[in-house]
Design a protein around this nucleic acid. Structure first.
Length: 889
DNA sequence: GACTTCACG
DNA sequence: ACGTACGTGAAGTCG
């Protein structure tokens, strides 16, 4: 006998139920980034850890109930009839328990027609028969205690899921003075309220135990019933005889269910760490994640050899390189435009040279090396590397591979930007994460021992080099090599150049606005205090809610998770009945401008060049768009006049220059017209119609040339937006403030008028289901695992995403192509004009006034020619002395 | 650090 | 019956 086998059987449903209520008080804090409740999954995971440690089983299975109907409901159709429906917050978690178990390497099992209890009863018996030394059962339910024997212990959760009460035959004898099998008789007599079967009238646990001590079993009781003294109880027993036997039968756990798994298949071989890590990331279980990150992990990582680079060796080292060279430049602080340099690593084929002295890079041999575009480089984050080297006066060319960009293209959902984490994602373990080496938050700093830094840098370089071939191969398999080589990689350089160029901001203008806003802010503040008859913090939605809805008793229109909503929509509805609502809106508007835009922008103006240098995130969004941070220059106010004034501060870098901007008109709807091949939608664009008016005519059944009143156009515009977002009647009704039914009518008529748009929507969802992802025109991918979710919300969200991503993503692709071509044109033509900003469908430039006539032709032409669609593109443009003055002409 | 609000396409 | 419009970033409050 090689080993003593020990089987652990877990009652999945009942433990999940206990787990759910164990953390029920914290249900609102256990929500992951996808909006899934995770409290039951979390507690279930804790339980697993506890029992694995406690029992150290050799074999495990978790049994689940298969469905509502079982052989018991056939015998007694009220079985479990009174049971409350499982809360949706719990049922949405159940599918993920299976994922968790799979990652744990634990078999889960359910059997049609049987309950988890019966699976457990059957396997417990089989295991004992097959010579297992021990069986432990974990459940939240005392029913299973009937299975206890010398070999089988039933562990019932008490208070939460981490404390177990072990029911052995001895323990049961002590507690009930019964044998385990008599538990069944007890249930037969006393019934079970939770399973909703009756037992005998007026007989509860106590009476049942008394009777069983005397007569041993239900059968025994009825054999001796005649001899019992007349009593109310005797009468009840007589009347309820059938019920008693039925209840006993229902309470009996099957030990011969047709379970199809073999005991050998339940052997436990441990967790799948990579799968578990993915799962914890998905659930946002950071504590489990960090426990998983084995504290010894870094020690287990293969050490990489490195040499400290000294100046004298540079020419020889560079001369010795053949083929691609890996280079990595370390900067710790978040903003790489100003972050101090921490060090660098360079090398190839496992030969790494490190240094903390970035001045070495300015040696002529190095600068020539970096500028040589024939000398291929492998990097992590080309844009950051380009900007960093630029700060050292070094030109960078010849990048051939960017680990960050490639990883993003392979799966834009993995939007992290830590080299170590990304490497681990691709099964490369021999590199630490930055958090492991530098720490996080306020504690983030260079390691005391410089050797630790060197090792980390060398490991990073090795990771880049090792991952290049396999990830390049995956790009090709996905037909994404073109997307990488011809779009994203060259774009990284263009973006770097735009960030470096920066945009000039006029401090005086901002300060002037600040004064003006401050005055108005003070006035409206006092007015609000007067109306509220007290002073309070208007910025606090909580305090504001109290004033509006408790003190002033205004009607509550909407609630948020935590209290009253005071959002714009709500205040607008209150406006007619309460002037304070209007004033709060004014206050909010001004406060936002003041803090986010005036103060916010003043803080980030570079003291030397008076410019703002944003950072574009090229590897963040799930759709392929860029984002802009520190500061965000993609959300500078434009819609309201007050906010629009901010744009007066954005000026050209030289007098006698102008700001020039060009934008795509309706690019997303044009993309939709292209990919759906919808004739009517295409025709509207080909005829150069006002697209929203055209849609209005169609969905409201007007004549071709009929006048469209502004309200109809507004509604049609909302429908068009809805279509692009992956429409739902509810969403549209909310947006337009109409009934859901009315919204549905609009959508139905839209689809009738644009049948191929409807077909596209159906087809793209079907594609997502079939392949698990959707694609843009340029093969950008987005995986949608939730498309198969049983959870309505998650699935619906995935379906809307499937409809929207190819549209938004293709539009993002198109402007990226335009940017590349634009930058080439500016260079080839030796123009001074500079591309400064991208705001999703528009490009902003600064240029000498004398170049404007050329730009007015060139920019629209380049943007227009970026891609050939089945419908024409339309590009608008304008210019002026400040960004504010740029209005389309 | 979660939550709410609001700026943009 | 379920309860959402798609994609972002920043500032403020509050526990």
């Amino acid at each position: 006998m090689a080993s003593e086998k020990h089987l652990l059987l877990i009652d999945g449903n009942s433990v999940a139920f206990r787990a759910f209520f164990a953390l029920h008080s914290q249900i609102n804090t256990f929500i992951n980034h996808s909006g899934l409740h995770t409290n039951a999954i979390y507690a279930f995971n804790t339980m697993l850890d506890v029992v694995l440690k406690k029992f150290a089983p050799t074999h495990i299975l978790v049994a689940f109930d298969a469905g509502k109907t079982t052989f018991r409901t056939k015998k007694y159709d009220n079985y479990k009839g009174q049971r409350a429906k499982t809360p949706s917050e719990l049922s949405e978690q159940l599918p993920f328990l299976h994922d968790l178990l799979k990652a744990y390497g634990i078999c889960s099992y359910e059997l049609v027609n049987y309950e988890a209890d019966d699976i457990i009863g059957t396997l417990a018996k089989r295991a004992v028969d097959k010579g297992f030394k021990k069986v432990d059962i974990v459940t939240g339910d005392r029913d299973l205690t009937q299975l206890a024997t010398d070999q089988v212990t039933v562990n019932v959760t008490v208070k939460g899921v981490n404390h177990l009460e072990a029911y052995t035959p001895e323990h049961i004898a002590e507690k009930y003075q019964l044998t385990p099998r008599q538990i069944i008789d007890m249930k037969g007599l006393a019934g079970d309220t939770s399973d909703n079967y009756p037992g005998v009238t007026k007989v509860g646990e106590k009476t049942a135990i008394k009777l069983l001590k005397k007569y041993h079993s239900v059968e025994g009781i009825y054999e001796h019933l005649a001899q019992m003294k007349p009593s109310k109880m005797k009468e009840n027993l007589q009347n309820d005889k059938q019920q008693a036997f039925l209840s006993k039968d229902l309470a009996t756990i099957k030990q011969d269910a047709p379970v199809t798994v073999e005991l050998e298949d339940l052997a436990y071989h441990g967790q799948d760490i990579a799968a578990l890590r993915r799962f914890y990331q998905e659930m946002d279980f950071n504590s489990f994640l960090s426990k998983l990150a084995d504290p010894e992990a870094d020690k287990k990582r293969e050490k990489v050899k490195f040499q400290k680079l000294v100046q004298a060796d540079i020419p020889a080292v560079l001369a010795g390189f053949t083929g691609p060279v890996t280079f990595y430049l370390e900067m710790l602080a978040s903003n790489y435009h100003v972050a101090p340099f921490a060090g660098f690593v360079i090398g190839q084929k496992g030969q790494w040279y490190v240094s903390t002295d970035v001045k070495l890079l300015q040696q002529p041999a190095f600068t020539a090396f970096f500028a040589d575009e024939k000398q291929e480089k492998l990097v992590f984050d080309a844009k950051r590397t380009y900007v960093g080297l630029n700060r050292l006066g070094i030109k960078l060319a010849g990048i051939r591979f960017d680990l960050l960009l490639v990883s993003y293209l392979l799966n834009p959902n993995d939007s992290g930007n830590d080299l170590g984490k990304i490497a681990h994602l691709h099964q490369y373990q021999d590199v630490a994460t930055d958090e492991e080496i530098y720490g996080k938050g306020a504690k983030r700093a260079l390691p005391e021992d410089v050797q630790v830094l060197y090792q980390h840098l060398a490991q990073k370089a090795q990771a880049i080099e090792q991952l290049q071939a396999p990830l390049d191969k995956r790009l090709e398999e996905n037909e994404q090599d073109g997307l990488f080589k011809e779009m994203e990689l060259p774009l990284a350089i263009v973006l770097a150049q735009m960030e470096i160029a920066g945009i000039r901001v006029d401090k005086k203008q901002l300060n002037q606005l600040r004064k003006q806003f401050a005055q108005r802010l003070e006035t409206v503040k006092q007015k609000i205090y007067a109306e509220a008859e007290e002073e309070f913090n208007i910025n606090s939605s909580k305090q504001l809610g109290k004033i509006l809805f408790e003190k002033m008793n205004l009607p509550v229109i909407k609630k948020t998770k935590t209290g009253y909503s005071t959002a714009v929509g709500v205040l607008e509805q209150l406006r007619p009945i309460a002037p304070i609502a209007s004033d709060v809106l004014d206050y909010r508007g001004l406060a936002k401008l003041q803090s986010t835009y005036i103060d916010g922008l003043l803080k980030v103006i570079h003291p030397e060049d008076q410019k703002i240098h944003t950072t574009y995130l090229q590897t963040l969004t799930a759709t392929g768009r860029l984002s802009s941070i520190d500061p965000n220059l993609q959300n500078i106010p434009v819609r309201d006049e007050d906010g629009r004034q901010i744009r007066r501060a954005f000026v050209p870098r030289q007098a006698d220059w102008q700001i020039f901007a060009a934008d795509y008109s309706q690019i997303e709807l044009r993309v939709l017209a292209h990919i759906s091949h919808d004739h009517n939608l295409q025709q509207a664009f080909i005829n150069g119609e006002d697209i929203h008016a055209s849609t209005a005519r169609r969905i409201f059944g007007l004549d071709q040339n009929a006048e469209v009143d502004p309200n109809m156009r507004r509604q049609a515009k909302a429908v068009n937006f809805g279509i692009v977002y992956g429409i739902s009647d509810y969403g549209l009704s909310q947006n337009l403030g109409i009934s859901r039914k009315q919204a549905k009518n609009y959508i139905d008529s839209y689809f009738q008028e644009y049948p191929n748009v409807k077909k596209y929507m159906n087809d793209i969802v079907a594609m997502a289901k079939k392949y698990g992802y959707v694609e843009t025109l340029f093969h950008r991918r987005r995986y949608l695992p939730d498309i198969h979710s049983k959870n309505f919300n998650r699935r619906s969200f995935a379906e809307r995403t499937a409809m929207n991503t190819p549209i938004q993503g293709s539009a993002a692709d198109i402007i990226k192509v335009a940017m590349l071509n634009m930058q080439r044109q500016l260079k080839e033509r030796n123009l001074q004009a500079t591309m400064l900003l991208q705001v999703h469908d528009e490009l902003i430039f600064e240029a000498p006034t004398k170049e404007l006539p050329l730009l007015q032709k060139l920019v629209p032409q380049v943007m227009d020619a970026a891609v050939k669609l089945e419908v024409p593109m339309k590009v608008g443009y304008g210019s002026g002395p400040t960004w504010y003055d740029v209005k389309e002409s």
